[in-house]
Simulated assay, not measured.
Amino acid sequence: MNANKSTLRGIEVQYINNALPGLPGPLKDKVGVALNATRTWGDMDYIVDGKVLHIDRLLYQRNWMANAAVFYNLPHDGEARTEQLQLG
C-alpha cells in the first residue's frame, strides 16, 4: 500500500538431462535430473510519513534461489520426482 516504485531484475540458469547415461539395468534411460539457479536484484521506494525511503532490495524476495530434482520416468508418461529447494 505504501510502495511508490519498485524494480526487479534477474537471471536464471537451468540444466535438464532426461536420461543420465551409463546407468545399469532398470535405471537405464529412466533417471534424469533438473537443476536451476536464479539470482535477483531489486530496489523499492516506500512512502513513510510522507517521505520517500529507498531500499536496495525487495521485501520478502530472496537474492538467490536454487532447485535440484531427480526423477524416474514411469510407463505411460508418468514420473516420480524428488526435489530440493534452496533459498539464500
Score class of each variant (00 low, 15 high):
30 K>P: 08
22 G>A: 12
28 K>L: 08
87 L>P: 05
82 T>F: 03
70 V>I: 14
62 R>K: 06
40 T>S: 13
14 Q>V: 04
29 D>Y: 06
2 N>V: 00
82 T>C: 01
81 R>P: 06
84 Q>T: 15
77 D>H: 03
16 I>H: 05
33 V>F: 10
26 P>A: 12
45 D>E: 04
28 K>N: 09
15 Y>A: 14
13 V>A: 13
49 D>L: 02
29 D>Q: 07
63 N>T: 15
46 Y>A: 07
81 R>H: 04
29 D>P: 04
15 Y>E: 12
54 H>F: 07
28 K>F: 05
39 R>L: 03
15 Y>M: 09
15 Y>Q: 12
79 E>P: 00
85 L>K: 09
31 V>L: 13
47 I>N: 06
2 N>K: 00
71 F>S: 06
66 A>C: 06
4 N>Q: 13
52 V>H: 05
83 E>P: 00
42 G>D: 03
88 G>I: 05
25 G>H: 04
67 N>T: 14
55 I>Y: 03
87 L>S: 10
16 I>G: 04
2 N>Q: 09
10 G>Y: 06
46 Y>L: 15
6 S>R: 06
68 A>M: 02
13 V>P: 03
8 L>M: 13
88 G>C: 04
23 L>V: 15
85 L>C: 05
87 L>G: 11
58 L>W: 00
45 D>I: 01
50 G>H: 01
25 G>R: 08
78 G>W: 05
80 A>F: 02
58 L>F: 01
33 V>C: 05
21 P>R: 11
59 L>A: 15
18 N>S: 13
8 L>D: 09
43 D>N: 11
3 A>C: 01
22 G>L: 03
43 D>P: 02
28 K>I: 00
26 P>I: 15
58 L>A: 08
18 N>T: 14
58 L>Y: 01
42 G>A: 02
80 A>D: 02
40 T>N: 12
55 I>M: 08
29 D>A: 10
16 I>E: 14
64 W>Q: 09
49 D>P: 02
